[in-house]
Design a protein around this nucleic acid. Structure first.
Lengths: 342, 342
DNA sequence: TATGGTCCTGCAAACGATTGCACCGCGTCG
DNA sequence: CGACGCGGTGCAATCGTTTGCAGGACCATA
């Protein structure tokens, strides 16, 4: 009844030694065994419906064909498409992914890494926000490759796939500037995250390139990428600079928070203030108003990260390790020329 | 450098036999070993930072402390909260979950189940739509418990956690009826899915209970729970019964599709037609208009399913196996009295 | 003092695969 | 004709745990 067909059963049927079966079935040792014998083994395996037991294999080889994937929270709509990309690509290569939610909590993160190491994961993909230094150290200590997603270390010491944040923000600013806006604010992300930081730098640069001045009261920083923080920071921004006609948010969730604050203050979007987000999360096209935002190729991020990992796992000849994906602008209803209603 | 500390190392330090270490460390065999010895072993393990190797353990015990979780698509916003619930609860109990996307494709499903069996998962949790019969058979053949989520088999042959669909739809219909609507349509879900079917039955029942007649042209069936199908079926419905003033959709995505069709035809919601959804997916409160919908306790579904699984895994004394969770109505902007604008 | 019973703990065989090593037969070359 | 090389296969150890079984130490009872 059980899937009890082992390598020994196959050996018996094929009338060879279990060791030979192993060699015949393993792609890179097949050369060692006589063609004819190999075929006989293959047939026997097929016939019996033999499936090698990855557990037993892993015990001997120290490989689990499993990749640990760390994300802050699967409930954040940004991640499912990325995960989907990772899983699909990894799956094609015979790998499985083990997903954990860290909630950006160092303790949870540590526990999960520990558990994953115990489970002999072959590598880590991390889309998590904190502690990458330590994670990197952990991974290095365990001799496991680590791929960063959606963020990177300044010194490029770990392979990473990110989107070109500066370019994305530039698209947003240009669009707003082209509409005729002069006084443009930035609801920035946390500066200790590479995404938040780079988008902030990108904003400043794009503004000056557009010939616009960026006054210090036109920028406010959030502590996290959440809707609540977006609302709080937007309020702060409007208090400091009530004459703004447009806001570039560092992230869709922050933009959502801006919507909240505008509504609370009786301001209309886009008539009174235009808003641009970042990420193009699912369903932001259905908001009121539909959010103009910078679209990042989320699924592609996942597949590319998986590719990077697979590459690290097979040939250790390291190809490109810092991959930059290009975002695009999606113009929808939350942006309009300034004073559009007047 | 490696996590190379094995049970033998601990044994050496504690000056006992590896077998004794195993017994001392395993909760339900600890009684077999002298208190004092056990403590010594524990200290040694602690000191060395010993982590038992689950792979090796699994090889001997045939348990992987891993649960296979099948969902159609992680990209569907309905699932992340459920997954989160499952993972958190399972994690507390020392289990890990292996998530796969089936896309409701029988082949993909089969392949994944096969792979998971090979990986010796201890059980399956399925939120997938198709093939449960076969999945059940597979699981039974492998001697692995199976828990169904969000749907069930008519004969209750597998433990399942579902929401009370009939009750939920009743809430929706009652709300609409209370607003004064008489001509109420139903964009139904697929009838081969238990959710779709039960919501349809609930609709009919609730209507008659409200003293309203349900004419056959007031109900149309969709093939899948998708936005596109919602749009298609809604159009069909409006063609057949142009005088409807309210629509109960079997699902939020279908409701979204209804929005599309209304907009396309220049009908306003809720002024011309009220719409109610089902599930309260994330962000449907931010749509235009905010969607009135039936809220299901998504995260709780996950935790309860995990509980059910854990229960099956430990004591096989089977407690309640069909668990019904109660939904609530969330009234928002997509419903209003008929002819509200006139 | 012999016997029996209770606790412990060591021993060794699994679990299912991989892999270094040895061996065998045979062809080839000197 | 002997030695060598080589392709192919079997042997057995190994990965890190768990667990049935045996046996030793100790105590109590007859």
């Amino acid at each position: 009844m059980r899937s009890a067909v082992t390598i020994r059963d196959v050996a018996r049927v094929a009338k060879v030694h279990p060791g030979t079966v192993s060699r015949a079935l393993n792609a890179d040792t097949r050369a060692l065994v006589n063609e004819e014998t190999a075929e006989r083994v293959l047939r026997a395996a097929e016939e019996l419906g033999y499936r090698p037991n990855p557990i037993a294999r892993g015990l001997k080889t120290n490989r689990s064909y499993t990749i640990g994937v760390l994300i802050p929270d699967i409930t954040n709509p940004l991640f499912p498409p990325i995960l989907r990309g990772i899983e699909d690509r990894l799956g094609e290569a015979g790998y499985t992914s083990l997903i954990v939610n860290t909630d950006n909590d160092p303790d949870r993160e540590r526990i999960h890494i520990e558990a994953m190491r115990a489970r002999q994961v072959d590598g880590f993909i991390s889309a998590t926000a904190r502690l990458d230094r330590e994670l990197l150290a952990e991974a290095a200590a365990a001799g496991k490759p680590l791929v960063l997603v959606n963020r990177s270390l300044e010194d490029g010491s770990a392979p990473a796939v990110t989107v070109d944040d500066a370019f994305g923000i530039r698209l947003a600013v240009q669009h707003i500037a082209d509409l005729g806006h002069k006084r443009i604010g930035h609801v920035s992300g946390p500066q200790n995250l590479s995404t938040g930081h780079r988008r902030y730098l990108g904003f400043v640069e794009a503004m000056t390139d557009a010939g616009l001045e960026v006054q210090s009261e036109h920028v406010r920083f959030s502590k996290w990428f959440t809707e609540d923080e977006g609302a709080r920071v937007c309020a702060e921004l409007l208090d400091a600079a009530p004459d703004l006609t447009a806001i570039v948010a560092a992230n869709d969730l922050l933009a959502l928070g801006c919507y909240d604050t505008l509504e609370e203050r009786g301001l209309r979007c886009p008539e009174d203030i235009s808003i641009v987000g970042f990420n193009d999360m699912p369903f932001v096209d259905r908001l009121r108003p539909p959010l103009t935002t910078v679209r990042v190729p989320q699924r592609e991020i996942g597949t590319v990260a998986a590719d990077l990992m697979l590459q690290r796992l097979t040939d250790d000849g390291d190809g490109a390790s810092q991959i930059l994906l290009e975002p695009t602008l999606v113009v929808r209803g939350s942006t309009a020329p300034p004073g559009a209603s007047r």
